[in-house]
C-alpha cells in the first residue's frame, strides 16, 4: 500500500514542501499544489515542451519527472525569470518582436531559450531551431520566436 511522500525542494530560490503520491508528476505539483501555473500542460507526454523547467540546472519537461524524484532539488520556473520588475532580455525581446501570440507555449520556450543561451551565447539560427524543437508553438510559425531568441542573445553578448 502506498503512502504519501513528504518532499522538500527549492523553487525559484524559495523552500517549499508538499505531500504527494508516487504517480504525481512534478508538473502536477508545481501547478496544483504550489499554484505556480505559469508552467503549462500541453500533452503530459514530453512532446510539446510547455511544461519546461530547470531541475538542478538541467532543462527538463516537468511532466516527465515524478514529484517524488524532486526531493532535495532546485527547480526554476517562469515565475522566477524576471528579477524584480526587470524582465529578462529574452522576455523583453519576445514582447518587442512579437515572439508570442496566444502565449501558452511562451513560458516553456523562454525557459528553454534561457538554457540555450547559458550554454551557447551565440547560437546560429539553425542551432536555436534545433534546441527549441522540443517546444511546440502553433501560432507563430516560429519565425518571430527565433528572431526574439537571436536578438536577446545579441543583446546579452553586448553585440
Amino acid at each position: 500500500m502506498s503512502r504519501k511522500h513528504h518532499i522538500t525542494l527549492q523553487v525559484n530560490g524559495d523552500e517549499h514542501e508538499f505531500l504527494c503520491e508516487p504517480q504525481q508528476t512534478l508538473l502536477d505539483v508545481i501547478r496544483d499544489e504550489l499554484m505556480l501555473t505559469g508552467t503549462k500542460e500541453g500533452c503530459a507526454t514530453g512532446d510539446c515542451g510547455a511544461c519546461s523547467v530547470m531541475l538542478d540546472g538541467r532543462l527538463v519537461c516537468s511532466c516527465l519527472v515524478l514529484a517524488v524524484e524532486a526531493e532535495g532539488t532546485s527547480v526554476e520556473t517562469i515565475e522566477g525569470m524576471a528579477s524584480g520588475d526587470r524582465l529578462h532580455p529574452l522576455q523583453r525581446n519576445f514582447l518587442e518582436l512579437n515572439g508570442l501570440q496566444c502565449g501558452i507555449c511562451t513560458p516553456g520556450i523562454l525557459i528553454a531559450a534561457r538554457a540555450l543561451l547559458e550554454k551557447n551565447p551565440n547560437p546560429t539560427e539553425t542551432e536555436a531551431r534545433y534546441w527549441l524543437a522540443g517546444n511546440l508553438c502553433r501560432c507563430t510559425g516560429y519565425d518571430k520566436v527565433i528572431r526574439s531568441v537571436l536578438a536577446a542573445a545579441a543583446e546579452m553578448r553586448g553585440a
Binding site: G46, L55, R58, L59, C61, A112, W131, A133, G134
Partner: peptide, 9 residues
Amino acid sequence: IGSIQVKGR
C-alpha cells in the same frame, strides 16, 4: 532521443 528536455532525463 527526444528533445533537449527529454535528453535532460
